[in-house]
Amino acid sequence: MSRFTLLKKAKEIGVITERYPYKPTKVPEGFRGKPEIDPEKCIGCCACIAACPPNALTSLDENGYRVIRIFYGRCIFCGRCVDVCPEKAIRMTEEFELTADDHEELVQEVRLKLVRCSVCGRYYDTERHYRMILKEFEEAGLKVDPEVLRRCPEHRMGMSAEVIGLRRVRK
C-alpha cells in the first residue's frame, strides 16, 4: 500500500526542480549577499574592520593612502560591517554567485588619501575624515585653526580648547 502512496504523491507534486543555471534565480528581500563598500561614502574610519569577526575587512596605510580591503573569500556574510558603519557606506547586495578562478578576484579595495600630522609630519588619518571633523566644528559654530586640528593622536594629547584656537564665533 505504502509504495503506491508515495508514487501517487510524487505524481501529485510533479517536477519541482528549478531551472537554474539556465534561468536566473531570485533571492528574498533582505538577503545577505556580497557586502559592498560605496567608495564615495567611505571615510576610512575602520569601524567595520574592528567589528568584522573573521577579519575579512582589513586596512593598511601605504604610500599616503589608506587601503580598506574586503576579501570575500573569508567573509562570513554576517553583515556586522553594515550595522556599524557610521556613514552607511556598506550594504549587503543580492549577489551570491561569487565563483572565481583566483582569490585576488574576490577583493574590493578602496584607497583613500591620508593627511599628515602638522607636528610630526606622519600620515595619521584620511583626508575625508579630517575634513568631516572640520565641517562638524564649523556646523557647530566653532572656529578652529585647521592646521592645529590636523594632529595625530599622539600630538593631540593634552590639547585644550585654547591650544586649538577654539573660540565661539559670535553671530
Partner: peptide, 28 residues
C-alpha cells in the same frame, strides 16, 4: 525515495529561514 521526500519538505524551511534571517543556514 524517503530521503528525497524529506529533503524536499526541508527545502521549504530553508527558504523560510532565508526570508526571515537573510541566510539559509547561518541566521546571524
Amino acid at each position: 525515495t524517503g530521503f528525497m521526500h524529506c529533503w524536499r519538505i526541508r527545502e521549504g524551511v530553508m527558504d523560510l529561514c532565508e526570508l526571515i534571517s537573510g541566510n539559509r543556514k547561518t541566521y546571524g
